[in-house]
């Protein structure tokens, strides 16, 4: 069996006396579509922040393609090929939609490859990404002119602009209608088909079930289930966590 793309070993995180994560072990294989679920406060976002370098895990080890990430700042993890989208969209408000995509192209793809991209090359890449998410007509608009679903798509396109091997989508569908959710799921599957491994953190179960090949459940900072989605949702401990005793 080939080495996992992402390996999380015994990761733990505390905020003062509160244990946010405890002994998390997780392997994510190359090309996988992994769903990560859990009730509010279960530690999903904390885990994402520890993986992406926004927070430091006091205990345990995170490695990406066999390389230990501990201590690396967020931008270096992005350059290694780990991208994320945020739970609440965080666009660069003073830049246009196309310029929002230009930033990771300049700072990640260029830094990684060491190649100075010509303006036309960057424009072509931006256009390709905008076409992928269906925002070509909004290229020159400011993020404030976008609808909620368009903002989510911009968030995903910006993450994709760094040419990642792994994309962690943190609640990319929160607050969207069912048709918009379907739209985003289809988009994430298209991204996965381009060879990007995706970890989807989500509360909308229909989206998680249709997207995920594997499902992991966190409750109170601990992993309580890991397996095929159909098996996991029938797990007694998962039912207890979601529905109570």
């Amino acid at each position: 069996m080939s080495a996992p793309l992402l390996r999380v070993e015994n990761v733990g995180k505390r905020f003062g006396g509160f244990i946010a994560l405890e002994g998390i072990n997780l392997d994510v294989a190359n090309g996988e579509r992994l769903g990560l679920i859990g009730p509010n406060g279960s530690g999903k976002s904390t885990l994402v922040n520890c993986l992406c370098g926004t927070l430091r895990n006091e205990i345990g080890r995170v490695s990406f393609e066999g390389r230990a990430l501990d201590g690396l700042p967020a931008h270096q993890r992005t350059r290694l090929g780990m991208a994320r989208s945020f739970q609440l969209p965080r666009p660069f408000t003073s830049l246009s939609v196309a310029e929002n995509l230009r930033v990771p192209l300049l700072y990640t793809v260029k830094a990684r490859s060491g190649i100075t991209h010509a303006g036309a090359d960057l424009d072509a890449r931006c256009h390709d990404l905008l076409a992928l998410v269906g925002l070509e007509s909004k290229a020159t608009k400011r993020p404030r002119d976008l609808t909620q679903v368009e903002m989510r798509k911009l968030e995903l396109a910006r993450a994709m602009a760094s040419d990642p091997k792994l994309l962690i989508a943190d609640e990319a569908m929160a607050g969207l209608s069912q048709s918009e959710v379907n739209d985003i799921v289809a988009l994430l599957i298209r991204m996965n088909e381009r060879g990007v491994t995706i970890v989807l953190i989500e509360h909308i179960m229909s989206a998680v079930m249709s997207f995920s090949q594997r499902l992991v459940v966190l409750v109170s900072g601990r992993k309580i289930a890991d397996g095929k989605p159909d098996d996991v949702i029938r797990d007694a401990e998962v039912e207890r966590a979601y529905l109570g005793q």
């Binding site: 926004t54 992005t78 666009p91 660069f92 003073s94 930033v103 990771p104 760094s162």
Partner: peptide, 17 residues
């Protein structure tokens, strides 16, 4: 571009490399 992203959102800037 880098400076503008710092002004707009530093966390998102880091996440963009």
């Amino acid at each position: 571009y880098g400076f503008a992203t710092i002004r707009d959102d530093e966390l998102a800037a880091e996440a963009s490399g």
